[in-house]
């Protein structure tokens, strides 16, 4: 339960950073925290208290495996999601760098277009 609360808190922190902070890098960090809060939640969905890794060893007890192993599907989803997040992070940082080159500042208020 405490881990779900952590995911919720991280989500809130990320959203706050994204919406309230004016510094573009802080917005980027906010978005990354928000994404990982969702990833954390996904991992927790498949987690079983005291569970074993979902790797089946030849000859092991099948019934025990089914009841003890954590759900591997959310882990696969999170891996995919992390890879997508990496691509997104690269693009965000690249854009932030370009903005810095152009304006010499990362303050969102100094930009002409960026209002939201």
């Amino acid at each position: 339960m405490i881990m779900y609360a952590l995911a919720a808190v991280l989500f809130g922190v990320g959203l706050y950073g994204l919406l309230v902070k004016r510094h573009l890098l802080k917005k980027v960090l906010g978005l990354l925290i928000l994404e990982h809060a969702v990833n954390l939640f996904l991992v927790e969905v498949g987690y079983i208290e005291g569970g074993t890794p979902p790797i089946r060893i030849e000859g092991a007890d099948a019934a025990a495996f089914v009841s003890n192993a954590v759900d591997p599907v959310p882990q696969a989803l999170v891996l995919t999601s992390i890879v997508i997040g990496l691509g997104l992070a690269m693009l965000m940082v690249a854009l932030t760098l370009r903005i810095y080159e152009r304006y010499g500042s990362l303050d969102a208020n100094r930009m002409s277009e960026l209002k939201g």
Partner: peptide
Amino acid sequence: GREIEAAFK
């Protein structure tokens, strides 16, 4: 400048 800002947003 316009394009990058719009893309960032």
